[in-house]
Design a protein around this nucleic acid. Structure first.
Lengths: 154, 154
DNA sequence: TGACAATATTCGTTTGAACATATAATATTA
DNA sequence: TAATATTATATGTTCAAACGAATATTGTCA
C-alpha cells in the first residue's frame, strides 16, 4: 500500500498565527535592517551607534547616560563603553552636570551632527525604496498594528 | 519677546511614514525577541542556533551547509563554525553525501529534537501571551502587510 | 552625621557576528 | 586530461553584545 499525496516524513508542524506573525516580523525587520546597515557602512558606523546619535540629536541639551541606557534597554556599563567608542571618534562629548554632579550628560558633537546630516538623505531614500510602495494607508495600518502588538507587554 | 508654546531648541524632525513604520518594526521585533531569548536562555541556546534547529527539524533528511547559509543569509565559513558549536553539543550531526561527495548534510539529532520539544510549549505560550490579544483578524492583517512590505526587494 | 540610594565607571570574561583569505575535495565541462 | 566551478572547511582578525562584580562619587534622608 502506497501513500499518495501525503508528504513523506516531513513532520507536519502547524504554526499558530501568532508564531507566523512573529516570524514574518523577524524576516521583514532583518531584510530592512540589512538595507540600512549597508548605508551606514560607508560611514563606518553601526546601527547601534546610529541609533544613539539619533537619540542625542533629538535632545540637544544632552542626556544622562542612564537615560540612554533606558531607551536602548541596555545595561549601564555597556552604554559606557559604547559612548567611549563614540567619544573617541568625536561623535559625542560628555560633560558632568553641575546641579547633580553624579550625572554625566552625553551630547552629540557638530562632528556627529555632520555625520547624521550626510546620512539623512540616503537613509530617507532607502526607507522610501523599501516601504514606499505600500502607500500611506497601509503604512498607517502597519504602524497601528505594531503599536497594538507592543501594547500587551507595557 | 518671549516664545510661548514653541519647543525651545529641539530640532523639529519630521519623520516619514516609512521611517515611522521601520522604527516601529524595530521596536516591536526587539521587544518580542527579548521575550523569546529569555525562554531559550535556560536551555543555553541562542536564537540563531534555535533557528537552525527549527530549519533542520523541517528537513529530516538533512540539508547541505550551503543551503542553511542561504536561508540564514550568512557566509559559509560562519555557518561552518556555527554548526561546529552545535555539533560539539550534540544537537546536530554532519555526514558527507554519497552522490555528491562535496556536500555535507547537516541533520538534527534526537538530542536536538528533544531540546526543541522541550521548548515547543513555552515558545508557543510566549507567542500567545505576546500576540494573542491581537486576535485572528489583526494577526492575519499584520502578516499580510509584512509580506507586502518584503515584496519590494524580492 | 551616618546609612543608603543613585549614577557612572572600570575591569574582566565569554560569546558570537562579520569579514577576508586560503585550502581540500570533488564535479563539471571544454 | 586540463581547466574551472562548487562545496565545505580551516584560520585569523576585529568588533561588539551581554553578563557579573566592584568602585568612586555624589545626593538624599532618617
Amino acid at each position: 500500500m502506497k501513500e499518495t499525496a501525503e508528504p513523506e516524513k516531513k513532520t507536519r508542524r502547524v504554526r499558530s498565527p501568532e508564531e507566523e506573525a512573529y516570524l514574518d516580523l523577524l524576516r521583514t525587520t532583518d531584510m530592512l535592517s540589512r538595507g540600512l546597515v549597508s548605508i551606514l557602512k560607508p560611514e563606518d558606523i553601526s546601527s547601534t551607534q546610529y541609533n544613539v546619535l539619533r537619540i542625542l540629536r533629538g535632545s540637544p541639551d544632552g542626556l544622562p547616560c542612564g537615560e540612554i541606557a533606558n531607551r536602548m534597554i541596555t545595561r549601564d556599563p555597556d552604554i559606557t563603553r559604547l559612548l567611549d567608542r563614540m567619544e573617541k571618534r568625536g561623535l559625542i562629548a560628555r560633560s558632568r552636570e553641575t546641579k547633580d554632579r553624579r550625572m554625566v550628560l552625553a551630547r552629540i558633537t557638530s562632528e556627529g551632527l555632520k555625520l547624521l546630516a550626510r546620512l539623512d538623505k540616503p537613509v530617507e531614500e532607502a526607507h522610501h525604496r523599501q516601504l514606499g510602495h505600500l502607500g500611506r494607508e497601509r503604512l498607517r495600518a502597519l504602524t497601528e498594528l505594531l503599536l497594538a502588538a507592543r501594547a500587551a507587554v507595557s
